[in-house]
Amino acid sequence: MGKTTTSAAIAMGLAKRGHKTAVIDFDVGLRNLDLIMGCERRVVYDLVNVINNEATLNQALIKDKRCDQLYILPASQTRDKDALTTEGVGKILEELSKDFKYIVCDSPAGIERGATLAMYFADDAFVVTNPEVSSVRDSDRMLGILASKSRRAEKGEEPIKEYLLLTRYSPDRVKLGEMLSVDDVQEILSLHLLGVIPESKSVLSASNSGTPVILDEQSDAGQAYQDIVARYLGEEKPHRFIEEEKKGLLAKLFGSK
């Protein structure tokens, strides 16, 4: 769906703008944020070690080589999600929040422990969805959980701010009726759209090479993520990548892109 790609890109985007940012992988047992961040060979301790007091937070945090404002807290690959506890996660987030301006929690799929803990302490939530019916319904379910089972909801505070991100969007396929359009998704979820990430080969190649796609400034997906980070920080940016790309006459004739 693009949750980890998005987490990596947003964390990197925030860090690049000079905000001290930590990104935590909550997908215990299926960790791959470290791969996408390109730091898989530097993992010594992980989230579960810190929760179990087997390592300190500073030992487990990995500093990114490309941006000194960004730190990664990887998930454990050898445990499962039951190793996470609410108190443990709460303690880690509290400790991190002393040092870091933004903490990005990469939630696993599903509505089980990992996902509910990733969102429990959240202030803002990015809901990443694909333009297809099943994905949109899952997001709707997740929004329901965000509204009812977070700490903010339990304490009766102001609810979590929700932002909608549409990934793997392809205007061509929307036109052919193979995908839901931006308007369809927004209507179903009745949620404010933060941005659209176009379906792009650069996402795949960025993941494979361990570079967050936002660093690929030439690519459409990289630019889309930069727009999203800017909008999240309060800048006004017009939405891009929603309309079909207009091809020039030559491009039409030769069928190239």
């Binding site: 319904r137 329901g144 509204a147």
Partner: peptide
């Protein structure tokens, strides 16, 4: 909005001023 997976029960009348999602 009443989201997928949520249930709302009213002992009298129920008024929803937003959408009620599938599910």
């Amino acid at each position: 909005p009443v989201r997928s997976g949520q249930r709302v029960y009213a002992k009298g009348d129920l008024i929803v001023t937003a959408t009620v999602s599938a599910g």
